[in-house]
Design a binder for these strands. Structure first.
Length: 297
DNA sequence: TCCATTTGACCCAC
DNA sequence: GTGGGTCAAATGGA
């Protein structure tokens, strides 16, 4: 997997160089690979790279941390990179902390934070490795016992926000405003996206990784990510990805758990679909599932 | 006066 | 020990 990841990254780099050459000398565009094709191939390389990286999360974090040290973000990071031995193990875990969610939650990527509901801000935190702070909101009608909350984080310089909704509104004022996508997943949906990939650890915390992939493909779309327990009595998660404007929906069904699984942590996904109009850049290679090392699980 | 926002402190999972 | 999430006093605007 590491070898494949390096190959994808190198392929992406080479295509980027080709694209740079084309941009500097547009005359070469005719008769050869077009800039659009190159851009698509670059995108595909990095998308595949992300897919492979997510499949070997047990190995990559330390390596990525090492790369970060080489890159060096300047002040304050020096000591974090100079650690050795036992101390380094602790530092490698920094920034990876994610609290387990015990309630229903879903992620929406939107150019606006407005959703028609009344929210009250109750906190703001600077998140490690994030340039923008994360804002915490709860439903204004908490006196009605409404537990709905949301977290808003600006994810790019462009007005694009990652909004994490936690729990549904129970207050009467917002019942009518509940997003239409908060429904039971329907695996047999005719309007599905179509691509296939391997996911070593698809879990709530990693939905943001999926989100980032979609972001790269189409920044103009409002995309919802919703994850929930597939049933009350299981620890398996289902993830639904829906494009706001096209209505395309994708359901990632969990595999059947086997003894020894960390059920809270591990879910594999197989995507299937038919509509490519919104996420045409995600036509991944169909043989990637063969790369999953089930023995690791 | 009421309500929303800000922000430092605190709690707790990791 | 650290980072993410929440609390609550202080502050400001209507």
């Amino acid at each position: 997997m590491e070898k494949r990841l390096m190959e994808e990254l190198l392929a992406g780099k080479n295509r980027a160089i080709q694209l740079q050459t084309l941009l500097h000398n547009p005359a070469k565009d005719e008769g050869s690979v077009s800039r659009e094709e190159l851009a698509m191939k670059i995108l595909r390389s990095f998308t595949n790279g992300i897919s492979i990286a997510s499949s070997c999360t047990a190995v990559l974090p330390a390596q990525i941390a090492a790369v970060d040290c080489v890159g060096g973000s300047g002040s304050g990071s020096g000591s974090a990179c100079s650690g050795e031995g036992k101390k380094k193990v602790v530092k490698d875990k920094r920034g990876c902390y994610k609290r387990k969610r015990t309630s229903d939650a879903w992620i929406k990527v939107s150019p606006t934070v407005e959703d028609g509901c009344a929210w009250r801000k109750y906190g703001q935190k600077h998140i490690l490795n994030s340039y923008h702070p994360r804002c915490y909101y709860r439903c204004t009608h908490k006196y009605q016992g409404c537990k709905a909350k949301k977290q808003v984080q600006k994810i790019k310089e462009d007005p694009m926000y990652q909004i994490t909704y936690i729990d549904h509104h129970t207050c009467t004022d917002t019942q009518m405003m509940l997003p239409q996508h908060i429904v039971e997943p329907d695996p047999i949906e005719s309007n599905l996206l179509s691509f296939q990939r391997s996911i070593h650890s698809l879990k709530p915390a990693n939905v943001s990784l999926l989100k980032q992939e979609f972001e790269v493909v189409d920044m103009t779309q409002s995309v919802d990510f919703h994850y929930a327990k597939s049933s009350v009595n299981t620890s398996s998660w289902q993830v639904i990805i829906r494009s706001g404007s096209s209505g395309c929906k994708q359901v990632l069904s969990p595999r059947i758990p086997v003894p020894g699984d960390d059920l809270e942590e591990e879910v594999s996904g197989l995507y299937s679909c038919a509509s490519m109009n919104s996420f045409h850049g995600l036509d991944m290679e169909v043989d990637q599932l063969g790369d999953i090392d089930f023995e690791q699980w």
